[in-house]
Each structure stands twice: as C-alpha cells, then as structure tokens.
Nucleic acid binder design. Structure first.
Lengths: 214, 214
DNA sequence: TAGATTGTTAATCGATTAACAATC
DNA sequence: TAGATTGTTAATCGATTAACAATC
C-alpha cells in the first residue's frame, strides 16, 4: 500500500484557521461570508482562500460569498470533524497532559477515553477527567476500548518501541509528538508534530532581522 | 519593512530533524555522516538532504559525507541556536507550562527567565524553576528582564490585546501558540504554531484510508 | 584504483497567483 | 441595474527531483 500522503496538504492545513474565522461570523449572526473577508483576517490572498474552500465541495454565491452554516458543515465533514474519534493519550507527562486539556480538539471530535503512563504515582489518577492506566495494560486497553487514534507523547527513546506496541494493539492512527521518526507499517496513519521546526523558523526570522536582511 | 518571510522555509523546518539524527551519530562516535544515511533515517530523498544542508554553508566530502562536528556547528549557527535567547512565557496554563518544561528548547538556546499569568493562585509560584509573575507587571517585567522572545499561550480571546502589550514592552519576537492571527507591526517576528493544522492533516489521512482512496 | 557521495545545473512537479467570464 | 465575488482556466513561482561530472 502506498504511503499515506495528502493531496493539497497546504490547503488542508489552512482549513482550521478558516473554520475559526467562519465560526466567529456564525456567532455574530452572519449568513454569508466572502473569501475576501476571510483572506483579510488571515493576511492571505482571496484567490487562495477560494481555491482552498473549493476542495471541501462548498459552492459560493457571487457577490455574497459562502453560506456560513453550510461552509462550517462542509469543512467539518471534509475533515471528518463531524464524527467522534476515540483516542488514547500515551505518555501523560507535561505535554501529553496539556494536549488532553486542550478544549479545541474535543470540539473537533477528538475524544480521549484513557491515558497510559509508566509512573506508578500517576496510575489510577485522572488528568482532565481522563483515567491514567498502566502502560503494561496498553495493548489490552486499546483493544477493549476500541480507540482508533493514539496521541504519542512519551520520551523520545521510548517512542519507537511504544509505537510498535500500539500497532500490535491494532491502532489505526498515531499522532506523534516525539521527535522520533516512527517506523511502522504503511497502513498506519502517522502525523508527526515537530515543535522544533517552528522554532527553527522563528530563529531564522530573528537572525534575518538582526542582519537587516529580509 | 517587508513582512518577515523565510526563504527555503521547508528546508529550514527539516533542519531540526537532521540535527537530531546527526547528534545521534555524534554520540555514536562517528566522524562523518552522509546525506544518504540521514535521508534513510527520515524517509527522504538524499538529494533533498544535500540541498537542505547546503543552505547552512557546510561542505561535504565526496565518498565520506559531512564532518559530524562541523555539521552540527553549521546547523546550530545557521539557526542561531548556538546563542542564548532570553524568553518569557505569557500564560502559564497547561500548554504554556508544558512548553516551559520542554527540555529540548533549552538545548537550542531558548532560556525562560519568567512566566506571566493572571491567576493570583499561580503568581509567586514557580513552574519548572521559572517564577510566575503577575500579568499586570508584564510591560515593566519584559523591559527590565530584557527578554527578546515571548511564548504566547494565553486563551485566544486575550491573544491580540496581550500581543499589543508585548509590543509596547519592546518584545522582538512572538512565538504564538494561540489560534488567533496577531495584528502587530511588521518589524515584530511572529511564528504561529497551529496544532489544529496537524490534526486536520491526520484527519484527512484517516478519511482517505477509510475510503481506501490513497 | 573503484565506487560512493558530493555539489551543480537542468527538468519536473505542485502550489500560488493572475486573469477574466459568469452571475447573483 | 451595477459591481462585488465566485469558479475556471492559464501563468508564474518555488520546491522537489533527476542527471551527472567532479572527487576523495
């Protein structure tokens, strides 16, 4: 099977920002919102917004823009955010716990049913209302809970072996917050989140500004 | 002044991953590492690795690869990670505190000197050894501490107003973890980290797999 | 030496932007 | 109606990949 690759990845990455703006318009009671307005808010080109929205299948109205209600639905449906996805947190450290508490994900259908950790002090406790179970029980746990997503936030050295356990447990998708590139079968969906890459960008911008080379 | 934009942004984003691999080789005692090996580890094309590394100015040796020691130095210098950058955390909630505790950033020169929060319960306390100060004192605080980077992790609704305070306090760079697009003067460096965009990508991959459309 | 790997120059691919007719 | 905005088709731009001579 081919490696999971998303067409229009840059467009897909921008959709959540659009959704955020559109939701604001929705709360303000607007029935229509134009690509021009969205673009303005996000400092983008209107044509880019229109092209991006087109992938969700939404049809706009010349002069008025896009119907807000339908647009929210189209984006959410395209992303699968209109359905609940059961998830487990693997590694309930600082970052992991923070992710559990991140309200926005729940709004987008990410539903944590359990967390796993090796620390005996933590096992049996709850973080943000989610029970922390022993890492030793993870294989059975995932199977019986039927979780489809694992949010991986263990220390890097344990990332690969933990991923392998997740695969054995039948997990479908791994959201990888470690800085380790995971070696897993092609049919497993993996999305790696690398905080350092954003910091690298910030750092280079700072360097550029320092030398007045922009 | 032109909007801060990084040339070769995709390449810059990959550099931290390379650094990670190269450091491993360094610890293993290797004197040279080839682009081929790095590519293999990260599932990339060797030519891409070579092109990316070229922007740091490193010169490799045909047949052997790149000198490990010099390569680490070249990447770190290119990113400015060989110097200390003083930073403040603004918003000591779940995510913010997790970022403070993230060891890796310290390794790359990010040095937190203070955190600011509005919660009276937190003020006066320490997170990961860093004192939490009152948000009311942020303007003076940043000025006297001389911090150049602010890591912004306040609730979204307060993001814009907080950013304006940061600008008044003379901050140079904002690493923005809120899902709000900040409106600040062009000379301020802003890097926005959007966790939802990665989740969107994961979601679409899951959708694709479900329909066996890859 | 032989051959793996570099760095350069050219080709390809995909994403962004431009132009513009259609239209509510 | 007049004109702002859409969606489509084409042009541009930048990033990735390919080809290959140079070389340790």
């Amino acid at each position: 099977m081919a490696k999971n690759k998303v067409s229009y990845a840059p467009s897909v990455r921008r959709l959540p920002s659009y959704l955020h703006i559109i939701r604001q318009a929705q709360r303000a009671g607007d029935y229509y919102i134009s690509g021009t307005i969205i673009a303005q808010e996000l400092n983008l080109e209107p044509i880019q917004v229109r092209k991006d929205l087109a992938i969700t299948g939404i049809i706009g109205k010349p002069k008025k823009g896009y119907p807000v209600e339908a647009l929210v639905a189209a984006i959410e449906h395209y992303l699968g955010w209109d359905e609940v996805h059961e998830a487990v947190l693997v590694g309930a450290g600082n970052l992991g716990s923070a992710l559990l508490g991140y309200q926005e994900f729940q709004l987008h259908g990410l539903h944590f049913v359990a967390a796993f950790d090796t620390d005996p002090e933590k096992i049996g406790q709850h973080v943000h209302g989610v029970p922390i179970l022993s890492m030793d029980t993870i294989e059975q746990g995932i199977k019986s809970l039927g979780a489809e997503i694992a949010v991986l936030a263990v220390p890097s050295p344990r990332a690969q072996s933990t991923a392998e356990t997740l695969v054995r447990a039948g997990i479908g998708s791994i959201w990888n917050f470690t800085n380790t590139k995971l070696k897993v079968p092609d049919e497993i969906v993996v999305q790696r989140e690398d905080l350092s890459s954003g910091y690298a960008l910030l750092s280079v911008m700072m360097q550029n500004r320092k030398g007045r080379v922009v």
